[in-house]
């Protein structure tokens, strides 16, 4: 089932044409990896799906992005609610300078969930889903910034899961982590795709190959090639994809 459907998306930042005629369908319960060199537009593309680009002045967006059957750039769309349905995990772990518990409860609280029992359940369930519950259950009220980088990132994932999103955007979530922490996050992504549509931007070819079902290769704001990960990595159709992949492997 198609969860997010992007059709002929163009994004201009002032004079710069950052995304050119991008079309991509993202299926539910799959991991879609976006790869490509720095500045190719993959992160910009990711941020169009929860409209985080709205925060930047002078950005112009044309084309259509549908979440299920709703066009998310329609005027009547409440951006905050869209972002609740489309969760995001950032490149650098960014827990709030609050306790572990408060970090996870932050989102639900903003939606008026006040009952302590509900919040406790949400926090526990989210932390369990993010595979960090056992490590933090005894110190839920300690500052989140006292956790290690890998734990902070899993906490950020738990924080996003607390909102019961339908899509999870991940912007190079392991870029600042060591290999062991990276492996744990990758394991977690594998677990999470049973429930969510996951879109991940990554610099690491190996990571894309390991965890994704579909891959889209971005170059200079265009999608050069997209399809099943296995096929792209074994028999790329486009010369440029081949060059990029082999260059990185070799």
């Amino acid at each position: 089932m198609t969860k997010v459907s992007v059709t002929r998306l163009n994004l201009h930042y002032e004079e710069f044409h950052a995304l050119k005629d991008v079309s991509l369908d993202i299926k539910d319960k799959e991991v879609t990896a976006l790869i490509g060199p720095s500045g190719c537009g993959k992160s910009t593309f990711l941020r169009t799906i929860n409209r985080m680009n709205d925060l930047i002045d002078n950005v112009k967006i044309e084309g259509e992005i549908k979440l299920e059957d709703q066009d998310i750039y329609k005027k009547e769309v409440d951006v905050a609610q869209l972002r609740r349905r489309v969760g995001m995990v950032f490149q650098k772990p960014n827990p709030f300078p609050k306790s572990i518990y408060e970090n996870v409860a932050y989102g639900p609280r903003r939606y008026g969930i006040k009952a302590k029992t509900h919040l406790n359940e949400i926090v526990e369930r989210s932390l369990k889903k993010a595979a960090i519950w056992d490590e933090v259950k005894d110190r839920l009220h300690k500052p989140a910034l006292s956790l290690s980088g890998g734990q902070q990132q899993r906490l950020c994932i738990a924080r996003a899961l607390a909102m019961e999103p339908e899509v999870l955007l991940m912007d190079e979530p392991t870029a600042s982590l060591d290999p062991i922490a990276t492996a744990r996050i990758e394991e977690l992504i594998n677990e999470l795709k049973k429930e969510y549509a996951i879109i991940i931007v990554t610099h690491s070819m190996q990571q894309a190959a390991r965890i994704s079902d579909k891959t889209a290769f971005f170059l200079m704001g265009e999608i050069v090639e997209k399809g099943k990960t296995k096929e792209i990595f074994t028999v790329p159709k486009d010369k440029r994809t081949e060059g990029y992949i082999t260059g990185r492997f070799g």
């Binding site: 639900p108 359940e121 909102m163």
Partner: peptide
């Protein structure tokens, strides 16, 4: 015993909007 948070959120969404 776990409440369906998604449903709660959806209801709150509509009110909050």
């Amino acid at each position: 015993s776990v409440p369906n948070i998604q449903k709660i959120l959806h209801r709150k969404d509509l009110k909050r909007s």
